[in-house]
Design a protein around this nucleic acid. Structure first.
Length: 481
RNA sequence: CGGAGCGUAGCGCAGUCUGGUAGCGCACCUGUUUUGGGAACAGGGGGUCGGGGGUUCGAAUCCCUCCGCUCCGACCA
């Protein structure tokens, strides 16, 4: 009887983390691979999650007086070429549109025709085309600040892709702000990073470390890149959001000029900032367990699933559950009443794998007694509670809040336990050579040492960030996605 | 883009070495009995074996060539 308990996901995290990750997505029915290489199909349940994330973050940036816009998918090649570092950074991963027509070929197929005079690239990011518009829209300091955002898809031709974490096409928001002074731009990039921290920690329950990227990890063309770094359950880092202080680099190369208060012509100071569908991958690798996804209540597509335990007379139970659903919705909860013609255990496991935070079960006995049974996804069977329906309605919001903070605290403890302070490069080497997980924290001066590079290479490490908490005196090093 | 593995029913796989009628488990459909925790029995549907080309009387199987996926590296949100 040494048989281990059956898990809903095989393999388990311990057995094979990357494969487990794929299976969680498949089992939760969030996304799948598409016929197009490296591009995913986000399925309804996964997209509902993204929509919740979008809505919340969109509200946040509107409060910061950012206006939404939409810019073209295609960017003239010459635009991208304007900022030298930017080209270097993105050239290798650009998809290029060279033709605008198809015509029949000799074999009865189709071939591209109508060669374009100037090719377009499919946007890998939009600094250049938005900058071009800003250059026309901004004349005087009175036009500043100008804060624009777009929710869009971008394409980066990736060598190796993984659903949500790294796909050739992905969805994101990209914010692009322009300011009169360097100080305002710097403050803005920090402010948007703080918005990301707030969003990640307080809505997605993802504990993050805020900090500045080292020079070699900077966005191409930026003078500073700030990041929120999260730690996955395998101890690897995930860059979960970034904001960039672009200084005057883009303004100078694109020509974003304005007449200043003293009448002289000046270049604007710009920032850009983005978060993407990658955050979904981050939530999976942070919260999910060997039974599948665990959704943070604040963004969960369904916060509560109601499972009617049907015997002889389904109609009576269904009607009873419909009423409960309405009562919960009045309280603001997102509720799914599962009336599918399936066996109850199958529905239960489906809810488990989808990570619905709270499961409610109602059978004939409970209906008679005005009771219900509820189970928390994060705590499992142990948390099974039977109580009066009225009592549940009073408590439901509190339970959801508790799930939200429990999964956050669990992830935070996990991360903190796996950040190790070390004092020498030799310690760094030993840490990872011993197969230990997580990040090491070491004095930034180590970045100057020649001995660093071989160690980083040997263990495939990268610098994650110089945490604000350490005033930029320390640097975190770890493996990363 | 280098190295390794893989592609056969919706999913997971066997069959490939040694060419000879397309298989298994789960899922699905029908029926019966079940139902507070991944049901049982019976019957049934579903595949140009990733695409193209070649060798052969005959190819999932051998050869060539594309395409895709996974893992490890390099690159990156």
């Amino acid at each position: 009887m040494s048989k281990k308990p059956r898990t809903a996901i095989t393999p388990t995290r311990e057995e094979n983390f990357p494969e487990w990750y794929q299976q969680v997505i498949k089992s939760a029915d969030m996304a799948e691979n598409s016929p197009v290489r490296g591009c995913m199909i986000i399925k309804p349940y996964g997209y509902a999650l993204w929509e919740n994330m979008q809505r919340i973050f969109d509200d946040m940036i509107k409060k910061a007086e950012v206006k939404n816009t939409y810019f073209p998918l295609l960017i003239p090649l010459s635009f991208l070429a304007k900022e030298a570092e930017h080209v270097d950074g993105f050239a290798k991963e650009c998809a290029v549109v060279t033709h605008h027509r198809l015509e029949a070929d000799e074999d009865g197929g189709l071939k591209p025709a109508g060669k374009l005079e100037e090719p377009y690239v499919i946007r890998p990011t939009s600094e250049t085309i938005i900058g071009d518009a800003m250059a026309r829209w901004i004349q005087s300091y009175r036009d500043l600040p100008l804060k624009l955002n777009q929710w869009a898809n971008v394409m980066r031709w990736e060598m190796r892709t993984r659903l949500f974490l790294r796909t050739s096409e992905f969805l994101w928001q990209e914010g692009h702000n322009a300011f009169e002074t360097a100080e305002e731009a710097r403050e803005d990039s920090l402010k948007m990073l703080e918005a990301y921290r707030h969003f990640a920690e307080d809505y997605l329950a993802l504990p993050v470390i805020t900090g500045e990227k080292t020079v070699d990890e900077r966005f191409p063309g930026a003078i500073a890149t700030y990041t929120i770094e999260a730690m996955m359950q395998d101890g690897k880092a995930l860059q979960a959001g970034t904001s960039h202080d672009l200084g005057q680099n883009f303004a100078k190369s694109i020509g974003i000029k304005f007449q200043g208060r003293d009448g002289n012509e000046e270049f604007a100071h710009t920032t850009s900032w983005g978060i993407s569908t990658r955050l979904i991958g981050g939530m999976i690798m942070t919260h999910a367990d060997d039974d599948g996804m665990i959704m943070p209540p604040k963004v969960a597509p369904h916060q509560v699933v109601i499972l009617p335990v049907v015997k002889d007379d389904p109609d009576a139970i269904y009607e009873h559950c419909e009423k409960l659903k309405e009562n919960l919705e009045v309280l603001g909860a997102r509720v799914y009443l599962d009336k599918r013609e399936m066996r109850t255990p199958d529905k239960m496991w489906d809810a488990v794998k989808k990570g619905i935070p709270l499961r409610v079960e109602i059978g004939a006995r409970e209906m008679e007694a005005g009771q219900l049974t509820h189970v928390r996804r994060d705590l499992g069977r142990e948390s099974k509670t039977t109580c009066a329906a009225e009592e549940f309605l009073l408590n439901v919001q509190g339970i959801l809040d508790d799930i939200q903070s429990c999964i956050y605290n669990k992830a935070k403890a996990f991360m903190e336990e796996r950040i190790t302070d070390v004092s020498t490069l030799d310690d760094v080497h030993k840490h990872f050579a011993d197969g230990k997980l997580g990040f090491v924290r070491i004095d930034v001066s180590c970045l100057e040492e020649d001995a660093l590079e071989p160690i980083m290479k040997e263990h495939s490490l990268t610098t994650r960030c110089m945490p604000f908490a350490d005033d930029g005196k320390m640097v975190l090093i770890g493996k990363a996605y």
